[in-house]
Amino acid sequence: MLLPDSETIELRRDPLLPPEPCPVVWKRSARARRVSLRIDPLEGAVVVTLPNRVGRRHGLALLSEHAGWVMQRLAALAPERPFEPGASVPIGGVDHVIRHEPARRGAAFLEEGVLVVTGDAAFVARRVRDFLRAEALRRIGAAARPHAEALGVVPRAIRLKDTRSRWGSCAPDRTLAFSWRLVLAPDWVLDYVVAHEVAHLREMNHSDRFWAHVEARTPHRQAATEWLRRHGAALQRVG
């Protein structure tokens, strides 16, 4: 059963209102036991997952049944913040305007609260993204070092990803992985996520001993988790 990767369909959230366009991403999963819906803030769409041998019409039926919920959640998404001249991008939780200066050198760099991007306009978005990933790696590495020294551990490596549901992870081989989008959050939020994953190098679990290590390193844990709960989805809309 062939499915389109994505499409826009018309959904009616209320019988008395006209239909509205709804972006849909289709997924098929051999592990799925039923049709499911979720909102993907990065795509700005509803993701419909179908088990094998279940047709698109079943997904459309579920969408229609839950049209009110779907359209409400999509409408509540933070606005997209593209990487383009004149737009702003948060770095360390502080908005920086993207300023395109094609004649200058240096790809992309910070200058007095502005993110300067050089070269051809066609490369602005890519250069902003490259800068943010490099800055994320620098800040995460700087945050990890004192936590690792205090806990007497050494990460095997630090990697960056663009995950949608996890801000960080610790693999059995002691590799730490983080979402590059942490660079968009306030530094103290990034610091908590880094300390959390570094603590897993001592305790690969969420035991009382693990949380004691985390609390000792980041007394701002509760504030950081609350900030991510409130604002984390908006970071997925940046870029």
Rank of each mutant, 00 (worst) to 15 (best):
L42C: 11
V193Q: 01
V116R: 13
H206P: 14
R81L: 12
F83D: 02
R56P: 05
N52Y: 10
E112L: 03
F109E: 04
P155A: 09
L63A: 11
N52W: 04
T225K: 12
L16D: 15
S29A: 11
V46A: 04
L176V: 08
R138H: 07
L228M: 11
F123D: 13
V183Q: 00
V117H: 02
L235Y: 07
D130P: 01
G113F: 11
G44L: 08
G55N: 12
R34T: 14
P85W: 05
A233Q: 13
V128M: 10
P219I: 05
P21C: 05
R56H: 12
R33L: 12
A67E: 02
R133K: 15
P90R: 08
S36P: 01
S169F: 04
P146M: 10
R57F: 12
L74G: 10
W227V: 06
A233N: 09
G68D: 07
H147R: 08
A233D: 12
R139P: 01
E7N: 10
G44M: 06
L3Q: 11
R202V: 12
A125S: 15
G232V: 03
A142W: 04
G119H: 04
A224N: 02
D5Y: 06
I91L: 14
E43L: 15
L3N: 12
I158N: 01
S165Q: 15
L63K: 02
P51Q: 08
D208N: 07
L60A: 10
R229E: 12
A143E: 07
A144T: 09
P79T: 15
A67G: 05
M204V: 05
P41I: 12
L184F: 06
R164M: 10
H147A: 15
E80V: 13
R99C: 09
R145E: 15
R38L: 09
M1D: 11
F178R: 00
P41A: 14
F210W: 06
R81S: 12
D14Q: 11
P146I: 03
G168I: 01
P41R: 09
G86M: 14
E7G: 08
G232C: 06
T49V: 09
I39L: 14
L60C: 05
I98A: 05
P155N: 07
G59A: 08
L63R: 03
R166M: 11
V48D: 00
G141R: 11
E149K: 07
R230C: 10
D95E: 15
L37N: 07
R104F: 06
I140M: 09
R166H: 07
L190P: 00
R57N: 11
P15V: 01
S29E: 10
R57V: 09
G93A: 10
V117S: 03
G44Y: 05
V128N: 08
